[in-house]
Design a binder for these strands. Structure first.
Length: 267
DNA sequence: CCATGTACCTGAAGGC
DNA sequence: TGCCTTCAGGTACATG
C-alpha cells in the first residue's frame, strides 16, 4: 500500500497520540519484522517527535530512532486502552507505552521496524520527497535531465524523489498526459513543470482524503482512506477515460501493473 | 547506467 | 468444492 500520502496520514495521527509517551515494553512476535541495529535500551525512552521521509516514518526518541517502513501490507494500529486491541495472527511487533499500545501488523511480513542511531545515515540512499523544501522545480528538472530511465521507473525509484509509488505515479502521469514509457530526460521544460505541480497536487489531495485504501491500508485508528474513489486510471482497467472516454489500459511496465489512457497519454 | 528477473511473504481472485 | 496460477500499494540484489 502505503505511499507518501498514507505514511503522512499515519504520521499525523501518531503525532496526536504517542508524542511524549514513554516506551515501557517492546517485543517482536516475528523476529525479522524488527531490525535492531543500535545498542541502546528502548525501554524508558520517550517519543519526542515524529517525521517522515518519502515512505519512511521516523520516530525520534530520547536516545535513538525508530524508523518504520510499511512496505505492502504494514499497519500501525494505536489503542489508548489495551483491552481494545485485537491481537490477530498478523501482529508482528508490540510497543507498549506508559499509557497506550502501538501494534505493527503486517500480513506479508515485508515491512520493518528499524532501531537505529542516525536516520540521515540510514536513509542516505533515499532522495528528498515531493514536499521537501529542497525539492524545487529546478532541482526536479535537473534530476529528470540526469536520467535516461522511463519516467515511470524514474518516479518509482526512491533515489531521485521519494514517496511516489505505483498508484500516484500512474495517476500523476495521466493528469500530466505523459506516457509511462517516455524517457525522463526527454520531457520538455513546460511538461516537466506540469508534472511537478500535478504530482504535488495529487499527493496533497490524497493526504486530504486520508490516503487510498485498495485492500490493506488502514490508519492508526483502523480507518480506511477515501482517495481511491477519485482515481482516474489506477484500478480502472477497461473503464472509460474520464477525459476522452477511451478504454483505460493496464500493461506490465517497469515490473509493475501500469494503468494509462492510450489516447491521452500517447507515446 | 538501465532493464529485467528473483527474492522476500501471504491471501485473494480467477481459470478449469 | 478444490487445485493451480497469477497478482498485489515495495525494495534490495543479482545478472546481462
Amino acid at each position: 500500500m502505503p505511499e507518501l500520502p498514507e505514511v503522512e496520514t499515519v504520521a499525523n495521527e501518531l503525532k496526536a497520540s504517542v508524542i511524549n509517551k514513554k516506551i515501557v515494553y517492546i517485543e517482536a512476535l516475528w523476529a525479522k519484522s524488527f531490525d535492531n541495529r543500535f545498542d541502546a535500551d528502548l525501554k524508558g525512552q520517550i517519543i519526542t517527535s515524529i517525521g517522515r521521509r518519502g515512505k519512511y516514518l521516523i520516530l525520534n526518541l530520547s536516545k535513538s530512532f525508530l524508523v518504520i517502513h510499511l512496505r505492502m501490507t504494514g499497519q500501525l494500529l494505536y489503542f489508548e486502552n489495551e483491552s481494545d486491541a485485537n491481537f490477530d495472527d498478523y501482529i508482528r511487533v508490540v510497543i507498549k507505552f506508559n499509557n497506550g499500545l502501538l501494534l505493527f501488523k503486517d500480513v506479508r511480513k515485508f515491512g520493518r521496524v528499524y532501531h537505529i542511531k542516525d536516520p540521515d545515515i540510514f536513509l542516505s540512499h533515499v532522495g528528498p520527497d515531493a514536499f521537501d523544501q529542497n525539492m524545487t522545480l529546478s532541482v526536479f528538472k535537473s534530476k529528470l535531465l540526469s536520467s535516461n530511465m522511463s519516467i515511470k521507473a524514474f518516479l518509482l525509484s526512491q533515489k531521485y524523489i521519494s514517496g511516489m509509488g505505483n498508484i500516484y505515479t500512474d495517476e500523476t502521469l495521466f493528469v500530466s498526459k505523459i506516457n509511462p514509457s517516455s524517457k525522463a530526460n526527454s520531457i520538455k521544460y513546460k511538461k516537466a513543470e506540469q508534472l511537478f505541480l500535478n504530482m504535488k497536487t495529487i499527493l496533497r489531495a490524497s493526504i486530504n482524503n486520508m490516503g487510498s485504501t485498495i485492500s490493506d491500508y488502514r490508519d492508526p485508528a483502523g480507518n480506511k482512506g477515501n482517495n481511491q474513489f477519485y482515481f482516474n486510471v489506477y484500478d480502472r482497467e477497461g473503464q472509460p477515460c474520464k477525459v476522452c472516454n477511451t478504454e483505460i489500459k493496464k500493461i506490465k511496465f517497469a515490473g509493475r501493473g501500469t494503468h494509462f489512457c492510450p489516447k491521452c497519454q500517447k507515446a
